[in-house]
Amino acid sequence: MSTLPNAEQLFQQLCQQIKPLIQENTALIGIHSGGAWLMQRLLDTLTVQPVHGTLDVSFYRDDYLQRGLHHEPKPSNIAFDVQDRHIILIDDVFYTGRTIRAAMNELFDYGRPASITLAVLINRGGQELPIAPQICVHHMQVAQNQNIQLLQHADGSFYLELEDC
C-alpha cells in the first residue's frame, strides 16, 4: 500500500485541468459531500462564476433496497436549466462507477444536458460499469475492504484518510 498523496496538491492539479474547459455554457455540479467541497473551493479561485449546483444521489442509488436510506440525504440543489448545458460533474473518489450512474440518472430528470464530463481527484480502481472519468489526477489501488475518503480541516484545506470498512 503506497502512502496517501497530498490532497491539496491533487486539488490544485484538478483545478488546472478543469479551468480550461469552463466556457459560457458550462455548469459545474459537485456530488455530495466531497465533490461539493471540491467545487466550492474551485469556485473560490474563479473570477467569473459559472452556474453551479450540487447533487445528492441517495434517491437514485442502486443499492437502496439492500442498504436503505440510512445516511441523511442532503437536498440536491440545481437552480439552473440543465437543458443543453455542458456539465462538469465533480467527485472526490471514483470507485465502481455506480455513484456516477446514479448522478447521471438524477441529472437527466432535470433536463437533457449537451454533454457531461466527469472530473475526479482519485481513481481508486474497482470499476464495475462502463463509466470512467475524463479527468483524474491520481490513480491508486485501494483494497476492497478499505475506504479512501476526502476530508476537510477547519480551515477548508483537504486531506485524505484510509479506513477499514
Partner: peptide
C-alpha cells in the same frame, strides 16, 4: 427536506 426539491424539477419522480 431533500424531497421538496423533487417537486420543482422537470421530472418530478425518483426511482426509489
Amino acid at each position: 427536506e431533500s424531497f421538496v426539491g423533487v417537486a420543482e424539477r422537470e421530472v418530478k419522480k425518483v426511482p426509489l
